[in-house]
């Protein structure tokens, strides 16, 4: 099935508009094809964003409110979507240059064109100044953020046994959080792209795809960076898969590590 058609089917399922037979077939796929379940999670988040942004049609909005929002979990997700939008709205000027107002273009047609050009020149100089100062501030902030965020690099060997293995690699995560770069050592680097998934007690915490091999001495590793924030003390597993040209995953190996305080 084409991805776009599949996404439409998922939207219909989430909004409760899929017909009986299609629902049965789709539900079976949720249970038997892990990729379908993962994609459904993504489509669910996108639907929430579209609702918050007012991108849904009137009918979809009504279906969203009467069917989709029935559980407390989804209502919580909607609150999160609204918070995110609120945050982005209040920071919009920091990422995008505002559009040129139509009124300023009409200045060019005004009788005193000279003053218009003087005004434009002053505005350009002013903007350049602001961009320069903001660039300096951003560089300084970026430098201080880089200094403030600690980064831990850990090399993991394949085939490590499960959660109780006392030989699991120990990882100390800074109380400040930061990032942990896991280097997953490969015995046979045959794929162009890799996908890895972090688990704790069988619960998926983070997925990364389109990972590329890096050379490390004579070895090859697949780098997988995870946020230190999510690593509380305990045992973790990483599942590494290779991505075939067809887009399907092929399981390669499991890795495990233990986070200690």
């Amino acid at each position: 099935m084409k991805p776009e058609i599949e996404r439409q089917e998922m939207r219909a399922f989430l909004l409760g508009t899929l017909d009986g037979d299609q629902t049965t077939q789709f539900e079976e796929r949720i249970l038997t094809e892990p990729g379908v379940y993962e994609e459904l999670l993504v489509v669910e988040e996108e639907l929430i964003d579209q609702y918050v942004a007012g991108d849904l049609s009137a009918l979809e909005q009504q279906q969203f409110e009467s069917h989709f929002l029935i559980t407390a979990e989804r209502q919580k997700n909607l609150r999160f979507g609204k918070l995110l939008q609120k945050y982005a709205n209040s920071h919009i000027g920091l990422t995008e240059a505002p559009p040129v107002p139509v009124q300023s273009l009409s200045l060019l047609r005004a009788r005193s064109r000279r003053w218009a050009w003087v005004g434009i020149f002053a505005a350009v100089v002013g903007c350049a100044g602001i961009i320069f100062v903001r660039g300096l501030v951003n560089r300084r902030e970026a430098a201080s953020v880089e200094q403030a965020i600690p980064r831990v690099v850990v090399t993991l060997l394949p085939g490590s046994t499960g959660t109780e293995g006392s030989s699991a690699q120990r990882v100390i995560v800074s109380p400040k959080g930061g990032e942990v770069k896991l280097e997953l050592e490969l015995t046979n680097p045959t794929f162009r792209n890799y996908k890895s998934e972090l688990f704790r007690e069988n619960k998926s915490l983070q997925i990364a795809d389109e990972l590329r091999i890096e050379a490390k001495g004579e070895q090859h590793v697949v780098p997988f960076t995870v946020t230190g924030e999510m690593l509380s003390p305990g045992d973790y597993q990483v599942k590494l898969s290779g991505v075939l040209d067809s887009g399907a995953d092929e399981f390669i190996d499991n890795y495990s590590f233990r986070v200690i305080e």
Partner: peptide, 8 residues
């Protein structure tokens, strides 16, 4: 994230 949610 800001580009994803901020563009109007």
């Amino acid at each position: 994230l800001l580009r994803e949610y901020g563009a109007k």
